[in-house]
Design a protein around this nucleic acid. Structure first.
Lengths: 105, 105
DNA sequence: TGAATACATCAAAAAAATTTGATATGATTA
DNA sequence: TAATCATATCAAATTTTTTTGATGTATTCA
């Protein structure tokens, strides 16, 4: 059941916060805007998350892996860096599944 | 953040299954229908969950406690038994919070 | 009342998830 | 090419969650 996996990923406070940061992010660190994918102008890289969250690198990396593997976040390598952005569609899909399972609406 | 707590509860496969069972339950075990709360004709008791899920009593009890404490399930003691029913409004609230946090719609 | 039934709670064990520090990989830049 | 920077991965330690078996409490029923 996919919604269980999504719920697990969403149940960690740090990941939830990261997801909200990604949803809200309009600018990027570490590189000029020209490095960004034109279709996805938003995004954050690990280094920004590290300083923003005051967490060591491997810890950020671990949580980003969880987020990406769940599909809630997409990643986009740009040279040395890796940018992340929220996959809002995945959240919508999760919500739809939840509604269906819980016989809502 | 409340949605994190809800997500944690929803991230366990057993609890998710129980919640779906409660949502779908129209009849009850262990007692005549007259024992049921008239406002909430659905519901299941521990004993039915035990046999349905093939789990020992303390395990069912643990998960029901988690579900009740999260607000996803309401309980209703009826004499010797305890009936549970899904609180669909709580799921809806969770979904609304999620939508808000993820800037959806 | 006393036996039986249903559920709660507890502590210990087991399992799963997270954190950390060290090291590895891979791209960039001097 | 060598040094540097950003990120990935790993194993061990820690923390959190779940499971189990034992025991406690409350209600029902004979």
């Amino acid at each position: 059941m996919d919604s269980i996996k999504i719920a697990r990923v969403l149940s960690d406070p740090i990941r939830y916060k990261i997801l909200m940061m990604l949803v809200s992010s309009e600018s990027s660190c570490c590189s000029p805007a020209s490095h960004m994918d034109t279709d996805n102008p938003t995004g954050l890289c690990n280094c920004e998350l590290m300083s923003e969250l005051d967490m060591i690198q491997s810890r950020v990396s671990y949580h980003m892996k969880e987020l990406v593997e769940s599909g809630l976040v997409n990643e986009e390598p740009r040279g040395k860096w890796k940018y992340y952005y929220a996959n809002q569609r995945k959240v919508l899909d999760y919500i739809e599944q939840l509604k269906k399972d819980m016989k809502l609406e």
